[in-house]
Amino acid sequence: MIPTVSASGLTLRFGGTLALDDVSLRLGEGVTGLLGPNGAGKTTLLRVLATAVPADRGSFTVLGHDPGTTAGRLHVRRALGYLPQTPGFHQDFSAFEFVDYVAILKELTDRTARHREVRRVLDRVGLSDVRGKRIKRLSGGMRQRVALAAALIGDPGFLVLDEPTVGLDPEQRMRFRELIAQAGEGRTVLLSTHQTEDVAMLCHRVIVMDAGRVRFEGTPAELTERAAGRVWSSTERDPSARAGWRTGTGAFRNVGDPPEGADLLEPTLEDGYLLTLDAKAAEVAA
């Protein structure tokens, strides 16, 4: 894998909280999913990579540019598309006006060329028919697509998406997945999410974070494999299971260390994720 993004030893503390603890990673072309519980450091990592906040220690490059220098930081920002968890919409702007405003901030100074680019990205996310509509009158799914269009301005080589499907209904999530998959063709996308289903369906690679550290980095299949032989079915919740719940069939799905002779089930990526976090908890307890 030829890395678009290469980070080494990123460390950042907010007061008494170690938000990033010696984080190193490499991101290549395609969609990489970033999983972790609340407070894991996911959003902090995205903000550092987006040059919104500097790390206390460590370094990283984006497309060969070092944001530790003024010139390098400018190159990174020009090559970056960033969709934050809470986009700062100007509610009285139309969809076109908002994306055009972002295009101006990204130094697209030629008005004719800029407007052509704004129309291109709005068409890319399926909003051409409502580009004149005020953002405050758009649905939640449409607002997220406006934010994605703004992130796609200038055809960035590195796209950072923080919880882009949060609050969307199943149909909206499905359509947004399609847009993210298309965005990952020919560029690097880092997708932070709580939805393991999104990662399983979209991502070429996955990173699991907890307590500011990377706990796993590999393919979705490799994360799923961590749960092989450790998921089983029973008529009652097994008290020895790390996690267990009643499914729609009435049987219990248990994750952990199965008893001898247990009825083993095929693991999912979510199972591997839960066991990865459980292994970290056991390490801390020890």
Rank of each mutant, 00 (worst) to 15 (best):
D110R: 14
R13T: 14
L122N: 07
P259H: 09
Q85V: 03
L179W: 07
I180M: 06
V284E: 15
L264R: 14
T193R: 09
M201W: 02
S234H: 03
T193H: 09
H65M: 09
I180A: 07
E260R: 15
G88H: 01
V206I: 06
R114A: 04
T70V: 13
L74V: 15
G244F: 06
F158I: 12
D110P: 11
A71L: 11
M142F: 14
F216W: 05
F252G: 01
L264Q: 11
L80I: 05
L138V: 05
G9P: 07
G81K: 03
G58I: 12
A262W: 06
H115R: 15
L74E: 14
D238R: 11
V189T: 08
A52E: 15
D110C: 10
R137L: 15
V208N: 03
R213N: 00
F93T: 02
P267W: 00
G58L: 12
T86N: 08
L45Y: 05
A181V: 12
D22V: 07
L63V: 13
S240K: 10
A71Y: 02
A241E: 08
A50G: 15
P54K: 02
G157A: 12
L274A: 07
A286Q: 13
C203M: 02
V102P: 01
L10P: 13
F252L: 01
R111P: 15
G30E: 00
D155G: 08
G58Q: 11
V53A: 05
L83M: 15
G36R: 06
V23T: 02
D22Q: 13
Q91A: 14
T196F: 03
R57Y: 08
L275G: 04
T44N: 01
R137D: 09
E266V: 13
I207Y: 01
E185Q: 15
L277R: 09
S6N: 01
L20W: 03
P267I: 00
A149Q: 10
D162E: 07
T11I: 11
V255H: 01
V53S: 06
R187H: 07
R57D: 10
D66L: 12
L138M: 14
A103Q: 04
R175K: 14
A113E: 15
G68Y: 01
P156T: 05
S233D: 01
E178C: 08
E171L: 15
L20M: 06
R73I: 00
A251S: 09
H204Q: 11
F252I: 03
